[in-house]
Design a binder for these strands. Structure first.
Length: 554
RNA sequence: GGUCCUGUAGCUCAGUAGGAUAGAGCACUAGAUUCCUAAUCUAGGUGUCGCGCGUUCGAAUCGCGCCAGGAUCACCA
């Protein structure tokens, strides 16, 4: 916002220099304006002089002096200096920062949102777990990561569509049905053969029990596994969507792999690939020439048995995504899918679609620590911890926050002992408390019948304490922080912004009083109330944008 | 063996298009509340940024080669 303004100014200074022949335009788009890490190095800093000096083989500090000469007349700039190897440090007038409060007040709940997405249609596909059991901790990470990405994209002006892709057919479903049937028979006191690779979780017994409640023993003589599978899928799916809902997650569409078969998409993909000479038969199977796309080996797409491998429907599915006219396809996947990604990309490329429109966010695994030891997890053996269990332990906010805190590329260590016994150490309370603290002050103001003035009616120039300027700058950087987190599909950056915001605020709170009955300077109080009102808005927007609550009391 | 991810403080991790003296939380120590919620704040850090070489004004960041950990490499999904 303010940075963009400054970038424009620097660009025009650069352009001026080019036109008057002071330097060439070779450095165009190579320099940058950024916020220095260290205090005292300006509100912003640009490396333009060093970049130009490198290209023009001149002294950077001399060029910096020329840049400064041209910048000096700018109204928003208070002070300029040359520093270090040739940085131009720019100090802005406090008014520039103070005026931010008006912007927040005008935008309200929209402050931080933007339109950079230009209404681009983007599909975010995530979770996509097949209905074989409750969502595990790994699915939980993915659900929250995908959902927060979707939320950030919405906040930045994208038109977002959330989709869940699932398959309720095939071998794993047969095993699920067999497992359920075995439990059903066991519960009725009959002999039963539990499948060797069956699903051992307790939830299978619950499903069997509900079949007994509904139909009694009428299925005992039934050799058909289908009614068991159907019931299991129905109940597990209900369980999954309930879990998702309790994390605050909903989908626009659940896409069933079946429809790809029913509507002939599978066949037509094979035909199209065959017409392009990218498919051949070998050993009674049908192969896709992925080597044409630089892969090590070709892959089977239709097995000997006539059944497609997962690759084929995956490719057909992505073609359907393209056909539905999305501008951008974001796939959030676990790192165990790493090997499947190139095949799908090769497939859509072969079908003539632009695979660059697909962005895959692969997240690394979640490891679970209990009693200081790592827990091994498996759905089959039911040794996993479910999302439901975690939700019960720590609640939605903590779970969301914890899973958003790390970048997708990092493995995430979920320490159960920490989550259960030391909840207060969780940084989300630090952020939420920041919001609650403001609410508390505003309640106090109301009790004292102090009216909160609009930024235009208060003397904002009284906000001159370093901590106040720091807060104003942080508030001003919120929209850019959201934008960068959204476009880079990196929700953890928003989390870090909120923690920094809370840090600034808690420090300020401890050093300065907003309402001070003993030392009444009404004008200062008014200005500070304006400040914290804006701050409250930023906390609220930031938290809610990520699906977190902004409590008014804690 | 191939591909991908990771390696930064005792622990868990940030570090966006390469920038100035590498950061935060936790833990630990010492302090702060007659006063807007102490779920807070203040002070306390000798880190081979896994190792080496290269690119350049400048590297945790880019390139190459190693080392270590994880994922994955089916006619399972």
């Amino acid at each position: 916002m303010i940075q963009q303004r400054l970038e424009k100014i620097i660009n025009s200074v650069f352009q001026e220099g080019v036109e008057s022949g002071v330097w060439s335009d070779k450095a165009a788009h190579k320099y940058s304006v950024e916020v220095p890490k260290r205090e005292g190095q300006g509100d912003y800093s640009t490396n333009i002089a060093m970049v130009m000096a490198g290209i023009e083989k001149k002294n950077p500090r001399e060029i910096a002096a020329l840049v400064i000469e041209r910048l000096e007349k700018e109204e928003i700039i208070e002070k300029l200096e040359i520093a270090g190897p040739g940085f131009v440090n720019i100090f802005l007038k406090p008014k520039v920062w103070q005026d931010v409060l008006q912007l927040v007040s005008d935008a309200g709940a929209d402050f931080g949102k933007s339109t950079v997405g230009k209404g681009k249609k983007v599909m975010v596909e995530f979770v996509s777990a097949n209905p074989t059991g409750p969502l595990s901790i790994g699915h939980g990470r993915q659900a929250i990561l995908g959902d927060s990405i979707a939320r950030l994209l919405e906040a930045t002006g994208h038109s977002v569509y959330r989709e869940y892709y699932f398959n309720d057919a095939g071998r794993q479903m047969r095993v699920l049905g067999q497992s359920t049937r075995a439990r059903y028979l066991e519960l009725l006191g009959k002999e039963a053969q539990f499948p060797e690779d069956g699903y051992q979780g307790e939830y299978i017994k619950d499903i069997a029990q509900s079949l007994i409640d509904e139909k009694g023993d009428s299925l005992v003589e039934n050799d058909d596994v289908l009614p068991f599978t159907e019931k299991a899928v129905e109940l597990i799916f209900k369980d999954i969507s309930d879990t998702l809902k309790s994390m605050g997650i909903t989908f626009d569409n659940y896409f069933n792999e079946h429809t790809l078969y029913d509507d002939g998409h599978i066949d037509s993909v094979v035909k199209e690939l065959r017409d392009k000479g990218l498919v051949y038969e070998k050993d009674d199977a049908t192969w896709f020439k992925t080597t044409e796309f630089g892969h090590e080996q070709d892959r089977v797409i239709i097995k000997k048995t006539g059944e497609p491998t997962y690759r084929l429907p995956d490719i057909a599915y992505h073609r359907e995504k393209f056909r539905r006219n999305f501008d951008w396809l974001v796939n959030v996947l676990g790192s165990d899918h790493i090997a499947t990604v190139p095949d799908v990309l090769a497939g859509v490329k072969a079908l003539g679609y632009d695979s660059d429109k697909i962005t895959v966010v692969l997240h690394q695994f979640v490891t679970l620590t209990r009693d200081g030891k790592q827990v091994k997890m498996s759905t089959r053996k039911a040794t996993f911890v479910t999302v439901d269990e975690l939700l019960e332990l720590v609640g939605q906010d903590v779970l969301r926050f914890y899973f958003m805190m790390r970048k997708a590329d990092s493995q995430l260590d979920f320490d159960l002992d920490l989550a259960t016994s030391q909840e207060k150490e969780n940084p989300i309370y630090y952020v939420q408390y920041g919001h609650a603290r403001i609410c508390s002050i505003l309640r106090r103001a109301q009790d004292m019948e102090i009216k909160i003035k609009a930024p235009t009616d208060a003397d904002l120039s009284l906000l001159q304490e370093p901590e106040e300027l720091q807060l104003l700058k942080r508030i001003a950087s919120f929209p850019a922080a959201v934008e960068s987190a959204a476009l880079d599909l990196a929700p953890h950056r928003s989390i870090f912004f909120l923690m920094e915001l809370a840090g600034d605020w808690h420090s300020y709170y401890n050093k300065h009083k907003v309402i001070d009955p003993e030392n009444v300077d009404q004008a200062v109080t008014d200005a500070r109330l304006c400040l914290i009102t804006a701050l409250q808005q930023v906390f609220k927007n930031g938290l809610e944008m990520l699906g977190l609550t902004a409590p008014e009391k804690m």
